[in-house]
């Protein structure tokens, strides 16, 4: 390492830069996933009844709906309750002047078990609700739910494609930077082979060096991302996420920090290994 400090710095620098991008990407994705996860908790079915029902009948229906497998909670919304909710939502209550609760339909708010809070889950549950309330108009925010799920899927796809591309690009860059280091020391590698060193004996120090550079790059990238998180993300992205979902931004969890370090070590190791194959040839 002592004789090629410039190339060593270049390797660590490349690893740090690319792992920083990956870690930043992970930070944003993880927080968006957590936010969308919180949104999914709001997914529920609202069943509007064709005709008003009496309290006793409503209670009976509520019990039958509550006993459906996959239903978490059921709330009966009477005309008065619906009217009062609408009044709360519309701050300008003048709009409701002259409007009586009788124009509003009665409904049931059906909360779903957490594993069914998705479009597929709702579609699975609808026939069972329909069996209890055959004439009810069932609403579950179809369009919103579909958009929301497409958004989540898009995030996953982008994470996979961009993450994969970044890792591949990093491996390519690191491998080539390490190759320059090895090229500067190819005479030494040749001499080692001449005096009877086994490939492992020759490669081991370079692999260790690659792994150490990878770990250093990983550590520096985490440090950089943490500084960026403290300086910009907590304020900027944090307040944005809080305003749209009441969600507070978090730094990368320990498992992800370890994964970034591990990725650095593996990139350094495989970058060295692929280059060494070209330079260490015995017999």
């Amino acid at each position: 390492m002592r004789q090629s400090s410039f190339l060593c710095i270049a390797t660590v620098g490349t690893l740090t830069a690319t792992l920083t991008i990956i870690a930043l990407f992970a930070l944003v994705i993880i927080n968006l996933q957590a936010l969308t996860g919180r949104w999914s908790e709001d997914v529920q079915v609202r069943a509007y009844l064709e005709k008003p029902v009496r309290n006793a009948q409503a209670d009976q229906l509520r019990k039958r709906l509550g006993s459906i497998d996959g239903v978490d909670e059921v709330e009966f919304v009477s005309r008065e309750k619906a009217y009062s909710r609408m009044r709360q939502r519309l701050e300008n209550a003048d709009l409701l002047d002259g409007l009586s609760p009788e124009v509003l339909p009665v409904s049931f708010d059906i909360s779903l078990a957490s594993e069914l809070r998705s479009r597929e889950g709702v579609l699975e549950l609808l026939p069972r609700i329909k069996a209890v309330l055959p004439n009810a108009d069932l609403r579950y925010g179809q369009q919103w739910l579909e958009r929301f799920e497409s958004f989540v899927q898009m995030i996953y796809a982008a994470a996979t494609v961009l993450g994969g591309f970044l890792l591949f690009a990093t491996l390519f860059i690191v491998s080539n930077t390490i190759r320059l280091t090895l090229y500067a020391r190819k005479d030494e590698l040749e001499i080692m082979a001449l005096v009877g060193a086994t490939p492992f004996f020759i490669k081991a120090p370079f692999l260790l060096e690659g792994a150490a550079q990878g770990a250093l790059g990983g550590g520096l990238s985490l440090g950089t991302v943490y500084l960026l998180y403290q300086a910009f993300f907590r304020e900027g992205l944090g307040s944005l996420l809080f305003s749209i979902g009441g969600y507070e931004i978090h730094f990368l969890p320990a498992s992800h920090q370890l994964a970034i370090l591990g990725a650095g070590v593996l990139l350094g190791l495989f970058g060295s290994l692929s280059s060494l194959r070209k330079f260490v040839k015995i017999g």
């Binding site: 005479d187 490939p199 015995i282």
Partner: peptide, 26 residues
Amino acid sequence: RLKSREVPYLRRTIGVVFQDYKLMNS
């Protein structure tokens, strides 16, 4: 007929000297 992995062990019984010395300058 030596396999590549056996070559280092042969070389440990043979000393080689070159015109350009081939020393590790570092």
